[in-house]
Each structure stands twice: as C-alpha cells, then as structure tokens.
Amino acid sequence: MGKKRVINTILVQVILAVLAVIWLIPIVWLVVTSFSGTDGMNTSRFFPETWSLRNYTRLLAEPDTVAQFPKWFMNTFIIAVFNCIISTAFVLMVSYAMSCMRFKGRKALMNMAVILQLFPAFLSMIVIYFILKAVNLTNSHIGMILVYSGSAGLGYLVAKGFFDTIPKSLREAAYIEGASEARTFFTIVLPLSKPIIVYTIISSFLVPWTDFVFAKIILNSGVSTDWTVAIGLYNMLQKNLLPHYFTRFCAGGVLVGIPISILFVIMQKFYVEGITGGSVKG
C-alpha cells in the first residue's frame, strides 16, 4: 500500500509539473523575450541570444512616438482608479437594493438586466462614441471613465449573491433599534461585505488595463500620449512596427502583467465565492 502511494504521488506530481510547464511556456517566453538584447522577434530560439535590460530602460525612460509607456500607465491608472470608485459604488448600491429590499418592479428590473447582458456589448460602441462626441467627451479621461463605469450596475449579480448570504436577522435588529435603511446599509451590511468589496474593486480596476476595443474607438486623436496601456501595446504589434518593438512589447506586457497577477491572486478566493453564489466557505 505504501509503495503504491509513493508511486501515485510521483505520478501525480509529474503530471502536474508537465501541465504547469505547458501553462507557463508563453509566460516564460514573454519574460525572457523582454530581456532580449534585440528588437524583433526571434523565431529560431526560445531563449534570446543576448540578454539586456534595455527594453525596460527604453520603455520607461526613452519614450518615442510609438512607445509612451509611462504616459499610458498614468492614463490607465487614472481611468482605472475613477472607474473603480464609481463602478464599486454602483455595484454595491444595486446589489443592496436587489438583495435586501423588496419593492415593486424588482423582479422586472432583474430580468431586464439579464436580457441586456445578452446583447453583444461592442455592437453599441459606435453609438456610445457619438453620444460622447455630442457632449464633447471623446479623447478624454472622463469619457473613458463614463464608458467603463456607466453600465457597471449591470454587473451586480456576484455582489448580490454575497449580500443574500448576510442573515436577515442582523438587519432586522438594526431596524428595531430605529436605524434607517441607509444607516443599515452603511453600518451593518457594508462592514460585513469586505470580501465582495475587494472583489468588486479589483475587478473594476482591471477593466481599463485589458480593454482595447472601446479605448481604441474613443481615443481616436492619433496622439499616442492619449492612449491607454492596452491600445499602446496592441499598436506595437502592427506588422510594420513588430520588428522594432516586439521585445519592448514583451517588457510592457511584463510590467502590466506583474501587478495584475498579484491582484488576481489576491482576488481568486472571492472570485470563486462569487461564482458559486457564496455557497462555498473558505
């Protein structure tokens, strides 16, 4: 029995190691290429021939017309912070109303939300673009923030699932003590909801870092300092730029990827709780 166990353990570990290698190959390629001494893509070797930090130094310290990484990072960061504040507020507000309150039309609104999410989102982007243009908000941070956070309320389901698990008795006790609904929301429910608040904050923070569809159409001035990280990096891989910027693209990918990975690892627990409807403990 003992021997069989050892064999099994080794077998499982080996399988896992092989899978892990498969999953990590692209990431490793990203990282090693970012330290390459050349500019273009090396198609004959996995590891670069010469190692250098110059992709990072050029990306961070020597912006040119194509690569404005520090600027992009700032733009994206500003948009992300504001998006995160507004989106989180919207999501929590909608979730509380849908989960903890009972009013006429609640079910109807929830059904509406489900239906709305079935439409392909970027279908409407051209209309959104012209709406923003009508109020002069294209090519601006405010416009981008509005686009990302405007409809955030639709993504209330995960947070609602969490609020559903907060015992009703807690709120009822508060009402009996004469607390208003608003007071209950702020002093009873919110303090109990840290995990879901963290989850909402992180996931809304990540949106501007990964979207290139909306950003590309709304930030259309052609001036590269206006861009976000996602369009900037996407642009670097245009065929005529790729030979000169591929390794810098990788460096940019690493620089964006690291903080996001960290946030993501923090978030994974809440992600699971959200999807499984809060029915999972730990």
Partner: peptide, 9 residues
C-alpha cells in the same frame, strides 16, 4: 499566474 497576465498580451 498563467492566466492573470492580461489576455491581449
């Protein structure tokens, strides 16, 4: 970690 790098990258 493998999937947390943004998809477009």
């Amino acid at each position: 970690a493998a999937i947390s790098v943004p998809q477009f990258v």
